[in-house]
Structures are given as structure tokens and as C-alpha cells.
Design a binder for these strands. Structure first.
Lengths: 248, 248
DNA sequence: CGGCAAGTTGAGCCAGGTCAACTCCGGTGG
DNA sequence: CCACCGGAGTTGACCTGGCTCAACTTGCCG
């Protein structure tokens, strides 16, 4: 007895994780959707071109990190959003104000879904609809949180927020310290939080000096003091300094 | 023969505008949804409290402007998003990182929808689903655009972007100049674009001096030179200056 | 016409941008 | 095994856009 589930789906995180969209589909729906979709591997710098996105505006991320980038006239670049495992990016009708492109920040795996089949599946399978709807809302909330971070916060606060965001999106605990994996390079991180790489560096150092974080290596930090990190992220500016005063 | 459409809906923009959610519902659905919903008028400063939002996380805006505000520990306040006529705000599951409140920026009319009935209607009426889905995507794109504006842009560029956004969201043309209605006060505008009111003032003046915009009154500007405004918004910094150089 | 809130203008200061030099680190080939 | 290389990240010195604070003007409503 052969399982008729497409091979490519069998190992895909979108299908294996029961919370994700593809796990909610019937085998029949899965086959139908897969038949009209294209999965692909991407490496750092690879972009889904405008033409591709016009034809395939719906992209599911099964591994790695993608970025929605915006380029200004004078060359300033900014990363508007980060998409990771499980995100379903629905770019239908985006071409309003900013011309953006979807660029991979490392090795990643995506699946370009057929809009027609996707639409049809979503309108008939309300379980799947709920899942993708929830994901879209999460994306919206992240975008809103992010614009709050960008609008009034200082560099250190932005970085603290980012570390917390990383911790939320993919975390693991070891004994009682908390690990946050920084899934992108310094340059990308800087572009995402809207500061210069130099400033990112200085702020990391600052947090380290205050004993709030510790580096495992460049991309893994252990959060030594979550409470203070949260406070800083929320504008309680001297939260970390207090300690120094007390000991000094 | 009496039309069974609820009175409150008859005059509501969400029902009268054929593109909006409520216009897509059958009379039966409309009655059912309305029966479990509460509409309300709000004035400047009125907030939908956290408890209210917990019970009624879905709010439709039929008139006026609402803001999603975030307050930091030291009192810094920022407006994360603006919602206007036709927006359906779905705050289910928002309590992740930032505690926000929904505050009216002037006289407005809202309708708090029953999540259960809403969910049910959306899962059975795919026309309505498409409409509300589209609106949610627009909100996401706006949030993304906004976070781009906030992250790397300078004050003048942010303001230019905002004027263009206003023009997009509710515009009218008179002969060949374009009117943009600023639907919020200076203070709110400043909080939305993440600068001080003083800076907003200075930037408006700058745009006016360059002949790019003209004030009808405090809340209505005519855009004299859309092209240059767009260029400035997109980082072509000296776009307006060029003219001065040429004439000088 | 007074009174108050909203908005504007001006002067000085500082967080973070800029630019240049430096260190660190992984890969490669002699 | 080490010398070399190139790209990523860091550090330092200086400069500027926008914040701050305070005074002023404008517009709105009774």
C-alpha cells in the first residue's frame, strides 16, 4: 500500500509540523496543490524577481530566512520584513507604494504555490483557512510591532527588541539561561532594524558589558537577564545601568 | 413589503460601499452578524479597553480614524497604525510583544463584530472572505511600507511618504492639482511618523517653500508637484532643491 | 473679544551616521 | 603547517539631523 503523498511534501516542514498550512490539507488537496506548485532551494542573495512574483505571488517558506527588501533612490536599502519557516507570504496586490523584492538571506527552501489552487483550497477547507489566516495576522502584528520599534526607539532598544523577537520566533532553553539564535548576518540585522552595522556592533557590546547577554558565537547569544532586556526594549532606559551603580 | 436589513446597517459605509465586507453578505448573514454585534460612536481620545478587545477583538471602522497606540515605559508614545473607513481590525491573538490600545483620533464610528459569527460567515461565504482577506493584506502591506518609512528615512522623506499615503487612502482631484486630506492632528501625525511635532512643522514649511505643496488649511494640502514629492519620499533627496538651483 | 489649546519658530546639544583604519576568522595553496 | 587573502565585523574620531526646551503666534469656541 503506497501513500500517495508527494515525495517533496513528505520531508517538508510545512507538512510535517501539524500547526502549518499543508498539514491541514487532505491528501487529495495536497496532491492538487503540489501539482501546480514549484519548490526551490535558494542561496544567499537569490531573489524572486518581480516577474516571478507577479505570476507566483504566494510563497511558502519551509526552511531558512527570506527578506522583503526595499531599495531607495540613493542606494539606501532596508529590510522591511523577515520570513521564516512556516510563513506563507501572500504578495497578491502588493504593488501599491513601494517596489520590493523577496531575497534569501542564506540557504533556504521555498515553495511557490499556485494562487488558483491555493484560493480554492482556502475557500473550501476552513481548517486550512484558519491556519493561514492566523499566520497572516501574525505577520501583520510583527510588521506593526516592527514599525513601533523603528519609529521611536533608540538603537539599543531596537536591538533589544530584535533579540526578544528572535527568541520568540525560534527559541530553546538550556538549564535556566535562554538562547536566542540570530538567524541573519550583522549587515542584514542592521538593515532590518534601520541602523548602521557599526551601531549594531556597539550596541551588542553595550549589552554584553552590562551582563545582559553573552555570546556563544557570532550568531548565538545567551540571554542572561531577560527581565532587563525586556525593560530596555520597552524604553526603561537605565534598566541595565542601575546594576552598575549599585555595585560601583 | 419591508426590507429586513437592520436599520443601523442601512446607513453604514461598510454596507453601502459594494467593495466592503458587509455589502458581500446575504441579508440573512447581515441580520445574524448585526444581532451579535455592537456599534458605537467614539470621540477623540476614546479607547477600546484591553478587556473590551479581549471579548471583542474584531472591530470594523465605518467612519473616522482610529489609531493603534503603543506606550513605552518612559512615556514615549507611538502610533503604530491608522485605521480608516472600511478597515476591519482583527486583533485576535495580538498579545505577543507589545501591549497596544485602540484609540480614536476624532469623531468616529465603529462596529464591534462577534468573533463567532464573523468566523462562521467568513468560512461559508467565500465572497466575503475574499473581501476581508484583501483588506487584511492591505493592512499588512501598509504596516510594511510604514516600517520601511520609519527605519531608514529622514523626517522630510517620512512626511512626503505620509502625504502620499493620505492621497492614496482618500483622494480627490480638482482640475489638475491633487488634494491630500491630512485626517489627523499634527501631534498624531508626528507620533505616527515617529518625529516631534516641531519637526513636522519644519518639514511642512520646507515642502511649502520648495513649492511642492500648498496649504488650503491646516488639514488640507494641494500637491503642486507629485513627481518631486514621490522622489523625495523615495530618497531622491535633492529633488526639490534642484529647481531652486536652476532658477537661482 | 478673551482664553486656551494647537501649532510654529529659534537656539543649543547629543545619538547615531560617516569614513577610515583595524582585527578577526575561515578558506586555500605552497 | 603557516602565509596569505578577502570579507565580515569592530573600533575610533568627527559631524549633522533632529530632539529638547522655551517663547511665541495662530486658530477655534464660548
Amino acid at each position: 500500500m503506497t501513500t500517495p503523498i508527494p515525495n517533496i511534501c513528505k520531508s517538508c516542514t510545512l507538512h510535517c509540523d501539524p500547526n502549518r498550512f499543508c498539514a491541514r490539507l487532505t491528501t487529495e488537496e495536497l496532491i492538487k496543490l503540489n501539482g501546480k506548485s514549484h519548490s526551490a532551494s535558494m542561496k544567499r542573495g537569490d531573489a524572486l524577481s518581480d516577474e516571478t512574483l507577479m505570476q507566483w505571488p504566494i510563497v511558502a517558506v519551509s526552511a531558512g530566512v527570506l527578506s522583503l527588501q526595499h531599495l531607495m533612490a540613493d542606494g539606501r536599502k532596508s529590510i522591511a520584513a523577515l520570513y521564516m519557516q512556516g510563513d506563507i507570504i501572500d504578495l497578491r496586490g502588493i504593488s501599491n507604494r513601494n517596489r520590493c523584492s523577496l531575497i534569501s538571506l542564506g540557504a533556504s527552501k521555498v515553495c511557490r504555490l499556485s494562487p488558483e489552487v491555493f484560493e480554492q483550497v482556502v475557500s473550501t477547507n476552513s481548517d486550512a483557512q484558519t491556519s493561514v489566516w492566523k499566520n497572516l495576522r501574525e505577520q501583520t502584528f510583527r510588521a506593526i510591532d516592527h514599525s513601533v520599534d523603528m519609529s521611536k526607539k533608540q538603537a539599543l532598544e531596537k536591538l533589544a527588541s530584535f533579540i526578544i523577537e528572535c527568541n520568540h520566533r525560534a527559541f530553546s532553553t538550556k538549564e535556566d539561561t535562554i538562547i536566542a539564535k540570530i538567524p541573519v548576518r550583522r549587515v542584514d540585522l542592521a538593515e532590518y532594524i534601520g541602523v548602521q552595522p557599526e551601531t549594531v556592533s556597539r550596541c551588542f557590546k553595550d549589552l554584553q558589558n552590562r551582563g545582559i547577554i553573552e555570546f556563544e558565537n557570532l550568531s548565538v547569544v545567551t540571554i542572561q537577564d531577560v527581565v532587563t532586556l525586556r525593560k530596555i526594549a520597552n524604553g526603561d532606559w537605565n534598566a541595565g545601568i542601575q546594576k552598575v551603580k549599585v555595585t560601583g
